[in-house]
């Protein structure tokens, strides 16, 4: 005869297992969007309170460090602006000649990162822009530095972003210098892996990877990561460890682009 405890355990086990089996063959359930939205709002409130309490301390050290860095950056950028101006003019002239339409990625929204996920896995972050702001599933999320991930779920006022470091993420990329194409996917530990790269490809540590635009999801030319080390080889391909361009733990604001 089963006692109450064992009976409850069996019911729980059967219910959750059948739920998970069902979801593994289809999409994860998204129960009660209103409740989800309220919970995220609560999370946002806590986040705001935490930010307010720790803000003065962080502000001082950040401003001091930023000041030093910005002075260096201004000097470097002044030089670069002069050089870039010439290049841009030349580029426009050449494009006009080739009748190439300049395609710009339009920014749908700039969002604040509310939470960096509940367990860090799956690598999902919450942002404070949703359906009301024109966000749609599969839109690209980036910072000024590079690719962050893609929108996987849209709520009325919030959205979830799957980071490029999650094993469930993949994108088509190119090595910027050699233009060789490959597929990048997350490793789950804050880094990424580059797959299907031909074995004979000459590789150097620090080579930049950019999106190729061939997957139909991510616009072309967004910086993704730097080649770090070789993870493995087989008869045809080499697998490479990649360090993302963006600092996953330092994400504060992101852009959602079309």
């Amino acid at each position: 005869m089963l006692n109450r405890r064992n009976l409850l355990a069996i019911i729980l086990l059967l219910t959750t297992l059948s739920l998970m089996v069902f979801q593994s063959t289809r999409q994860p359930f998204r129960p009660l969007p209103r409740i989800q939205n309220s919970l995220v709002q609560l999370m946002d409130l806590f986040d705001d309170a935490y930010e307010r309490v720790t803000y003065p301390v962080r502000l001082y050290t950040r401003i001091r460090d930023e000041n030093v860095q910005l002075r260096k950056e201004v000097a470097r950028l002044r030089l670069q602006v002069q050089r870039d101006k010439e290049i841009r003019l030349e580029n426009k002239r050449l494009k006009r000649l080739l009748h190439v339409k300049e395609r710009q990625h339009s920014i749908v929204a700039v969002a604040r990162v509310i939470s960096s996920g509940l367990r860090k896995w799956p690598a999902i972050i919450l942002i404070n822009k949703g359906k009301k702001d024109g966000i749609k599933k599969d839109m690209t999320v980036r910072t000024a530095d590079g690719l962050v991930g893609k929108i996987v779920e849209v709520m009325p006022e919030y959205s979830r972003v799957l980071l490029l470091t999650d094993p469930g993420f993949s994108a088509s990329v190119r090595i910027q210098s050699t233009r060789t194409e490959a597929i990048i996917t997350g490793r789950g530990d804050g880094r990424c892996i580059l797959k299907y790269l031909p074995k004979e490809e000459p590789l150097e540590r620090g080579q930049l990877l950019v999106t190729s635009g061939l997957d139909g999801i991510f616009p072309k030319g967004i910086p993704v990561g730097y080649i770090d080390s070789i993870a493995g080889r087989d008869e045809l391909f080499v697998t490479v460890n990649v360090k993302p361009v963006i600092g996953i733990n330092r994400l504060e604001e992101v852009m959602i682009i079309r």
Binding site: T16, M20, Q23, P122, I124
Partner: peptide
């Protein structure tokens, strides 16, 4: 619900531990 992944893993583990 908040994890954004499948529903079940935490429910199973915490339910069992509570029990």
């Amino acid at each position: 619900i908040l994890s954004g992944s499948i529903i079940g893993p935490s429910t199973l583990s915490k339910g069992m531990i509570g029990l």
